[in-house]
Design a protein around this nucleic acid. Structure first.
Lengths: 208, 208
DNA sequence: GTCTATATTAAGATAGAC
DNA sequence: GTCTATCTTAATATAGAC
């Protein structure tokens, strides 16, 4: 017994949730997957909701660390792309949350407030990053534009992977965070000066 | 018995699906709402899936008509905004489909192909509209930009209303298509020449 | 900590009377 | 067309032995 059962339950649940969708995964399926009894599973978690909640908390911690952006951050475009990559990866690791968001938040009401806080945190993060680009004269936005852009960015990181996975719902094992980075960079592109656009275009091709 | 029961079932189901989420609505709840027996409901529809499928087909018809855009369409920006408004309204009327998309498509596999076709149709529609704007010199896009933009537009009309409704999950009765139009117009904005931007900004304020 | 067996609940669906 | 009564299935969860 190298890895504790509790931990194995969490990791198997996460894999199954992502692959099949959380509502389609029963506690029986999870215990089957691990070759343990359903009773054993319920010894470690008092309910399926507790598993979901604990996974959510781990996601929350990850995202919290990632979005701890200092007010005076200086990022170049390469670093920005890398940040986006990490963000899309985090979200992809817990993509089951996003794929049936309304359903999950309505069945596990305890997650609603925290989830909204994550969205707010994302939008604030994008705002800081835009400001950093502005300080470097890499971008020029008025307030209205910033609002719309940051909201659009927040929505895109939320839903891109779900949208992308509609192409083939068969193969849900993998997600491709690179395509998301590509898409987001193209959201910024039209706001950049000509020569910077070419630079970003080159970066975006790498992520494609 | 003015309105036929079958029709009443469809319309009550749609309302409940949109408000509570399709997975949270049981056949019993639907029949309760209409003060008919569950047996009666099953006389009219052989399964809950049949109700979902029929509602989907109505949505499909609506969207099909709306997206029947001629190749050589000429639209000004006002008309474009109005088109977006109609599109967001159609989607809002059947928003239950989008709010738990992965879940619904995985449980009703018969809808997958048709749903993907709708997405393709949307993207093609946006492509035609972009081309129309280009012919009028209102916008200037290369091929890469057009691809990224049309994909972004498609994703936005899909998920905007879900995203917007995360603000307050309590009140799911209403959706506000105007905010979506605003958001989409701001996606186009940076691609437009200065003076046109002001015009679109004014239009977008009306929809806010 | 883990198992087997079982209770509980609820949803989807059907049968047969009216 | 509509009702009542009931069946079937399956998921969440618990009890008690090992």
């Amino acid at each position: 017994m190298k890895v504790k059962t509790r931990e194995r339950i969490l990791s198997a649940s996460l894999a199954l949730f992502n692959e099949l969708g959380e509502p389609n995964v029963t506690t029986l399926l999870i215990s089957d997957e691990l070759d343990i009894s359903p009773g054993n599973l319920y010894y470690h978690f008092r309910s399926k909701g507790d598993i979901v909640t604990e996974l959510f908390e781990r996601f929350q911690d990850e995202i919290h660390d990632l979005l701890a952006i200092p007010d005076d951050v200086q990022v170049d475009l390469e670093q920005l792309a890398f940040f986006l990559h990490l963000l899309f990866e985090s979200i992809a690791r817990y993509r089951f949350l996003y794929q049936d968001l309304v359903n999950i938040l309505s069945r596990y009401e305890n997650l609603q407030k925290a989830f909204r806080a994550i969205l707010d945190r994302k939008e604030s993060g994008f705002r800081l990053l835009c400001q950093s680009l502005e300080r470097q004269q890499l971008i020029r936005l008025n307030e209205t534009q910033t609002d719309a852009l940051c909201r659009q960015l927040t929505m895109t990181v939320c839903y891109w992977s779900s949208f992308d996975s509609l192409r083939d719902l068969k193969d849900r094992r993998q997600a491709n965070p690179g395509r998301g980075v590509y898409q987001v960079l193209h959201l910024l592109m039209p706001h950049l000066p000509q020569q910077v656009q070419h630079e970003v275009l080159a970066i975006s091709q790498d992520y494609r």
